[in-house]
Design a protein around this nucleic acid. Structure first.
Length: 464
RNA sequence: GCCCCCAUCGUCUAGUGGCCUAGGACACCACCCUUUCAAGGUGGCGGCACGGGUUCGAAUCCCGUUGGGGGUGCCA
């Protein structure tokens, strides 16, 4: 039988990086084992559900390389479309004696628990033989005994039923809760492998009991560790940067994100963690996944991204960068962007950025009529007594020098030699005068690209 | 409180009883290269939480302690 994996996010308006990792695991496994990846949108909580959220999920998955058009991809299905099946399953459970109705409100349950000093529901209505009625919830009758969850990453995990209360299946308004809906959907969609985050581990025994009570095969379980922040807490939207879309907007490359996410809890063989997807598919297995939470380290993500940027063929880098440089939000008017200038500088920029988003700031002086000058940089560059006079001499030399990076460099060096100033220091005033900053891509190439007239204009303006 | 999971450098990990003087990556530091900054190269700093066992031999197996985390909803 072909394995069927599933990714079942609830729509939230952004795509969580933890969800991305879970999706990747499922996609990789489906690929590796010739199976199917089923996308199911768990939209049964009306309070957090907007139709457009689903588009966001699909496009985030596509960005990660999980394409809806791929034959291995199935869905999206919507949990809300299966409401009838959920209720039918609940009816079956009730009729077969595996579930019963209860008229206690959640407040009353809490009061009873408090009064008796115990936690959770105490089985108050187990044997009261209540009929269905308005406001009544259907609860699962947890049998005595124990459940062993066979987990592909953790091994066998045992739960004593005495610690599991009779949980709710149908709410007072008749709608199914996650525990039931999730299981019924997995049955409907013939899911064979459930790979999800560790926070679901406590749900596994309950759901396993449900599969069994429904007379269905229990899927293979795998609960992967959660992603945490520097405080070692589960990544949360409030405190942490968790939206995949945000990383995407900042210029993180999908391959880098995928590669980095895959190294959280797992590592490819050998001395490098930067490996192509095909290698990951080949080597990855759930039994090799770590059991402890992993810190989502943005710094390392950026390092990976830098690696991927440097690995890009130059043309692709140019394309990716141009998409940003031509886009909205640039500090120069669109018509001032000069593709030829950028293309000439691109290889020198490629080794100097960690994200595509850093490109504009690095080449802005090429397109700005008058680059803003960093005062601190200017003060430092022109602090020495020789600075202004030397720059004047450089300006004179640049008027006649052959206009190539090498020739410009030689001319500047000549000024330095005459004054006994090393090139490293000498270039500072020139750089600040032309680019506004003391750091940036190699200077002489920058000057060549900018052109003699503009360079001289800026240098004279700085000297004035 | 109760249930469950987990524990190797600061971080992500390799390691499945001898190959470990514990390897790599990110970060950090130094040096080299160098027109700034990067990139690249070389080197360095730094870890098996603790205590008991088991064994000829434990990072690796067992127990306990401590410390983290997750769950504990008529959310998913």
């Amino acid at each position: 039988m072909q394995p069927r994996y599933r990714f079942a996010p609830s729509p939230t308006g952004y795509f969580h990086v933890g969800g991305a990792r879970t999706a990747l695991y499922n996609w990789l496994l489906a690929t590796k084992h010739g199976g199917t990846f089923v996308l199911r949108i768990e939209d049964t909580d009306e309070s957090r559900n907007q139709p457009e959220w689903t588009d966001g999920i699909v496009s985030a998955l596509e960005w990660l390389g999980i394409a809806k058009s791929d034959p291995r991809f199935e869905g999206p299905y919507f949990q809300s479309d299966y409401a009838a099946q959920h209720v039918a399953a609940a009816q079956f459970l009730y009729q077969s004696g595996r579930a019963y109705w209860c008229d206690l409100t959640s407040e009353q349950v809490q009061e009873r628990a408090k009064a008796s000093g115990t936690a959770g529901y105490d089985g108050y209505s187990r044997d009261r033989g209540l009929e269905p009625g308005p406001g009544r919830v259907l609860r699962f009758r947890v049998p005595e005994g124990r459940t062993v969850v066979r987990d592909e990453v953790r091994g066998e995990v045992e739960f004593d039923h005495a610690t599991i209360e009779d949980f709710v299946l149908l709410r007072g308004n008749g709608t199914p809760v996650f525990l039931l809906a999730n299981v019924v959907d997995d049955v409907e969609m013939a899911i064979t492998h459930v790979v999800r985050a560790e926070e679901h581990l406590p749900n596994a025994p309950k759901q396993q009991m449900l599969f069994e009570a429904l007379g269905r095969d229990v899927p293979s379980w795998a609960h992967v560790p959660v992603l945490v922040n520097e405080q070692r807490k589960k990544l949360s939207k409030r405190r942490d940067k968790v939206a995949l879309e945000q990383y995407r907007a900042e210029g993180i490359l999908p391959d880098a994100m995928v590669n980095y996410l895959m190294t959280l809890g797992w590592a490819p063989q050998g001395d490098t963690e930067i490996v192509p997807w095909s290698t990951m598919v080949e080597q990855f297995e759930l039994s090799a996944v770590n059991h402890s939470p992993a810190f989502f380290d943005v710094k390392k993500l950026l390092a990976f991204n830098g690696e991927y940027i440097r690995m890009m063929p130059p043309d692709r880098f140019v394309d990716a960068a141009e998409a940003v440089l031509r886009g909205p939000g640039m500090p120069w008017p669109a018509e001032r962007f000069d593709a030829g200038r950028f293309r000439a500088m691109a290889p020198l920029v490629q080794t100097r950025v960690q994200t595509i988003g850093e490109v504009p700031a690095m080449v802005d002086f090429l397109f700005l009529a008058d680059p803003a000058v960093d005062e601190a940089d200017r003060a430092k560059a022109f602090g020495a007594e020789w600075a202004a006079p030397a720059l004047g001499e450089i300006a004179s030399a640049l008027e006649t020098v052959a206009w190539s990076a090498d020739a410009i460099k030689a001319a500047v060096e000549a000024v330095g030699e005459a004054r006994g100033v090393k090139l490293g220091k000498l270039q500072a005033p020139l750089r600040v005068a032309v680019t506004g900053r003391s750091v940036g891509p190699p200077l002489f190439e920058s000057l060549e690209v900018l052109g003699r007239d503009e360079v001289l204009r800026r240098v004279r303006a700085a000297l004035a």
